[in-house]
Design a binder for these strands. Structure first.
Length: 451
RNA sequence: GGUCCUAUCGUCUAACGGUCAGGACGCCAGGUUUUCAUCCUGGAAAUCGGAGUUCGAUUCUCCGUAGGAUCACCA
């Protein structure tokens, strides 16, 4: 029975690439707000002038948009770097009220230099706040001391800006990473000092690396861009991220963003951290790739790296086009597609394969020459076959294959066409290669066997 | 180390105090027209430990243990 409309916020700090964890926290704020018919506001926490950049800010905002996460202040995104005078007025009021004071001391950043920082006058009390995910959490703030809330009147620090902005922007629910739990008591102290109401807090479990520590660069890819580049679709990313630390209470696993909005229930958020499992993530990606039409799939493959297809020789557009669906069947991501073609896995489609003639021998045959008549018969059948589809080719050969033995015919035929022991089935191969090349390779095969 | 948080298959997770502890990913086996892949079927796989409350604890309480987060003039 919430009477106040819900307002959540996503406050990235543009001091680095768009972290996957930031994306998830943003997603949860979005889902919660939209589920309750409320608002989500975006705020750039760029008070650290030394580390914040416009480029990072753009990357993060673009990333959020790419994922489909929209905000209610799209045209007036709040930048803390532009609100110094607002923070100054709060600082002055706090000092006037005796809740903060100017303190002249040696700079921690540049030792030897004296500076005048603003410190909060800590009332030294025990604070208990209710976390919608974890229940009551109690801290004794005494040990915090008089925390520094601004480098000077015009240079406010994180804790102050967060509290002021959440208040000014009417934020009702603060959903953030578990790593902020210990920041909460000091922010509550500031709230009380400026007379701001306490929002409802909810601390989300962290995304963990496989060693169960907070996922960071040293564990590998952490930025959204890296996954985007590897070919993870936004649908898969949203879906997988939503299910890390949250469950719908049913067995459903595949969700669109809109479905997540209606299914989202903050009470189904877990307390323990969740290990990021790239295997399951890839499975989600594959699920979404499977929904693509062939044209969409080709667009997907060439989306960010048109040159990826160039690892497949250009000279045979036709074979390339027929090969793509075959590769599609065995990849989860664009990156895997790239790896396969780069590794030359399908070179035999474009270049005459080289192989030892012994490879042509079917395991049940006593000697290699046994395959000779079958290849000749296959050649004969294929000379008049309809090459317009895999099915028609299968029809052309199947009767004979049944008669002489499937493996007896199909095995040498595969090797003749691919030069490999592992490949798509011969019908598919023949279809991709086309009649002329198919017949040529069969001829080459029995030429190898010689007589 | 102080403070805080957490604890169900390898991983993500489900289970009004009463279930054969369920699902998914992955893995293994078998099958689906010859190999790989796909697909289908099946299988192995978990309640951190110890007390207590209770007729009955995965579930509630306490104590351990383990893991994590955080201890800035970063955010």
């Amino acid at each position: 029975m919430d009477h106040k409309p819900v307002v959540t916020r996503v406050p990235p700090s543009p001091t680095g690439h768009f972290h996957i964890g930031t994306a998830r926290t943003g997603l949860f704020n979005y889902l919660f707000a939209r589920h309750h018919g409320g608002k989500v506001v975006l705020r750039s926490e760029d008070t650290d002038k030394a580390r914040s950049t416009k480029e990072f800010e753009k990357e993060i905002i673009d990333g959020l948009h790419w994922l489909g996460i929209s905000f209610d202040n799209e045209d007036s995104i709040v930048r803390q770097s532009e609100r110094a005078s607002l923070y100054r007025s709060y600082l002055e009021q706090m000092i006037a009220d005796g809740n903060a004071y100017l303190s002249e001391e040696e700079s921690k950043n540049t030792p030897g230099q004296m500076v005048t920082v603003v410190r909060l006058k800590n009332p030294n009390k025990v604070i208990t706040f209710n976390d919608i995910i974890r229940g009551d959490i109690t801290f004794d703030t005494t040990e915090l001391g008089d925390i520094v809330i601004a480098r000077n009147l015009d240079d406010a620090l994180y804790h102050l800006t967060v509290v002021v902005d959440d208040f000014e922007m009417g934020v009702t629910h603060v959903l953030r990473g578990e790593d902020h739990i210990s920041n909460t008591p000091r922010q509550i102290l500031i709230q009380e000092a400026i007379g701001a109401p306490r929002p409802i807090y909810g601390h989300l479990p962290l995304i963990l690396a496989s060693d169960r520590s907070k996922m960071s660069k040293r564990h590998g890819a952490v930025s959204l861009h890296e996954y985007q580049k590897a070919g993870y679709t936004k649908e898969a990313i949203i879906n997988y991220l939503a299910l890390l630390g949250w469950n719908p209470g049913t067995d459903q696993e595949l969700f669109t963003l809109d479905e997540l909005v209606s299914a989202f229930d903050i009470h189904h958020v877990h307390k323990g951290g969740a290990v990021f499992d790239i295997k399951k993530f890839s499975w989600f990606n594959r699920e979404y790739l499977n929904k693509l039409t062939e044209d969409e799939f080709i667009a997907y493959i060439t989306e960010t790296f048109p040159e990826q297809l160039s690892s497949l020789p250009q000279y045979s557009e036709e074979r390339r086009g027929r090969l793509i669906p075959v590769i599609r069947e065995r990849i989860n991501t664009r990156g895997e597609f790239h790896a396969l073609t780069e590794a030359g896995e399908y070179d035999y489609i474009f270049d005459t394969p080289s192989y030892e003639k012994e490879t042509l021998q079917w395991k049940n045959d006593p000697e290699l020459t046994a395959t000779l008549p079958r290849l000749q018969k296959a050649h004969e059948l294929l000379s008049t076959a309809d090459f317009s589809s895999q099915e028609s080719l299968k029809n052309a050969l199947w009767g004979y294959a049944e008669e002489v033995g499937r493996g007896e015919l199909l095995w040498p035929l595969r090797v003749a066409l691919s030069g490999k022991k592992q490949s798509p089935d011969p019908f598919t191969l023949a279809y991709i290669l086309g009649q002329e090349e198919t017949l040529l390779r069969i001829t080459t095969a029995y030429g190898k066997i010689g007589v």
